[in-house]
Nucleic acid binder design. Structure first.
Lengths: 155, 155
DNA sequence: TCAATCTTGTTAACATGTTAATCAATAATC
DNA sequence: GATTATTGATTAACATGTTAACAAGATTGA
């Protein structure tokens, strides 16, 4: 066994980092986000806050924290902090669930919807550019493969 | 336009989060790492520290911080902190470059190599399981597609 | 040569990721 | 119905991500 740079002379260490799936996923994600982050930053919002708002907007009705965390791919401790921020900025409303005092119900408010409609055009533009650069069909295929991978590993 | 849950009645907001490439990449990465993290945790090391050690081990000779950061996909400020940790734990050695006093040269030490050889077998096992579940050929194809995407977006 | 500029690495400040512990409310069991 | 177990959310503690500012060494050019 021999790597391209020729310095790895041990046969029993892990595969080359260039062939590592976790790293490839990380780099791809970083490359994609490099396009979106400046747009979000211009609107004073982080990527995670944006995901929370989008999920809430898409869902359309109040969502409890666990459900929201799962859909936005954010861990509960992070979500707690994010909800605090978004609530202070009047983008969402948070209320306790009557009937189950443990649950917290989250709903997007006008401020949040307004922001979404502000950012949406730029966001679509970035995504369109991405599809144009990489190929619309390849984006679709990649999405299917990623989804398949996630499903097969989650059980 | 209409989403599956039927609650999104606005035609001008961003595409469904389920069809979002950033989120799909995030979820896939999370699903893959869920297998590796426990292994690394058992050895008292984080994912990023592991990446740094692997890059150093593969490269075989001293690497300056910028180069290391790039190869390990870690931002400079994070790397500074990680190097401090790994150095205290005797896994790497850090010295100033003679000839260019700004540069810092990092090299893996015996402690680091030992750890790599400890973790490697378990790591390979997890990866093999992943390839078996998802398909060896599909892993390869996915890696190529991710690499292609990263390349096409990085210019 | 020396002042302006660029480069490399670090520090700072804030947000999120990650795991474990905690707390309150509900559900389960007896 | 009181005790115990489980669940949903939060808090705590530490590591990393992210951007901006900074410090020190190297380069450049007048």
């Amino acid at each position: 066994m021999k790597t391209t740079n020729g310095t790895n002379h041990q046969a029993d260490i892990p595969a080359d980092t260039r062939k590592s799936l976790p790293i490839a996923l990380l780099r791809a994600r970083e490359a994609v986000m490099a396009g979106f982050r400046p747009v979000l930053a211009r609107h004073g919002i982080t990527e995670q806050q944006w995901r929370v708002l989008r999920v809430l907007s898409e869902f359309g009705e109040p969502l409890d924290a666990s459900n929201l965390a799962f859909r936005a791919s954010i861990l509960p401790p992070s979500l707690t902090r994010i909800l605090k921020m978004l609530s202070e900025r009047q983008m969402i409303s948070v209320i306790r669930d009557r009937g189950d005092g443990r649950r917290v119900l989250v709903q997007i408010s006008k401020g949040g919807e307004d922001l979404i409609h502000e950012v949406a055009p730029e966001s679509r533009e970035i995504y369109a550019d991405l599809e144009q650069r990489y190929g619309e069909d390849k984006v679709k295929l990649l999405l299917e493969m990623l989804d398949d991978l996630t499903t097969k590993l989650s059980r």
